[in-house]
Design a protein around this nucleic acid. Structure first.
Length: 216
DNA sequence: TCATGGATGGACT
DNA sequence: GTCCATCCATGAT
């Protein structure tokens, strides 16, 4: 299902202009492809946004300001920010917001739609609906490397590409982000209703239990 | 140069 | 529910 009004240029403009949470919703349902492997994104989390906003995001990797690691998040929208989690997992974000601001959407889970043989090699013995459940696993089945950081996934000539495929708002659910110790209750995690590939919610053991009303 | 801590996942009790 | 592998980025010394 491709819409004539959502080409790569228009979609980049959407990611650039939208609030991170709206960019996250826009990315849901799209397909990320690397070589033979294609994964439809069924779960995402929004991070970042303006530091001078009434509600800046201390859980985002952009929080300390630009560094060699996160500078791609301060670049143009539609690029890949890859980071290594716990020394093991390569997690994929797609950047959003205008250059200079800092924002991204973590791809948390996906449905394998192509390259099943390669996926089975990378996740031997794992049922396909669990192969790309969780951001580390999604990066693994797609064969994402740290060196891919900064790649423009909306450029059709890139080795990793993203194709938007918007879903109806009524199909989107939201809840608190997984594993973050700050702003743990901000409902910036979004997933497709009924998707079996969605990861389970795990609260950070460091997250304070006291929360304040959600004004965002 | 060193210490610390993860936007995790899987094994285990 | 708990434990921990593994390594990079960051900030402190």
């Amino acid at each position: 299902m491709t819409r004539p009004d959502t080409g790569p240029g228009q979609f980049r403009a959407l990611l650039r202009d939208a609030h991170p949470a709206d960019a996250a919703r826009a990315l849901l349902g799209g397909v990320l492809t690397h070589g033979p492997v294609s994964v439809r994104v069924v779960e995402v989390e929004a991070y970042g946004g303006p530091v001078d906003s009434p509600h800046p995001d201390p859980a985002a990797h952009t929080w300390p300001g630009p560094t060699p690691r996160n500078e791609v998040m301060f670049g143009d929208a539609g690029h890949m920010y890859v980071y290594l989690s716990h020394g093991i997992h390569r997690c994929v974000n797609i950047t959003c917001r205008p250059a200079g601001e800092g924002g991204g959407v973590l791809l948390r889970a996906g449905r394998v739609e192509g390259g099943h043989r390669v996926v089975d090699d990378r996740r031997p013995g794992i049922p396909v609906e669990r192969a790309a459940r969780g951001p580390g696993n999604l990066g693994k089945v797609l064969g994402i490397e740290l060196s891919y950081r900064g790649m423009d996934v909306l450029d059709p000539s890139s080795s990793v590409t993203f194709r938007a495929d918007p879903v109806a708002e009524s199909q989107i659910r939201s809840g608190p982000r997984v594993g973050v110790s700050r702003e743990a209750d901000r409902p910036w995690r979004f997933w497709l209703a009924g998707a079996r590939e969605v990861s389970s919610y795990r609260r950070s053991p460091r997250a304070p239990r006291v929360t304040h009303p959600a004004p965002w």
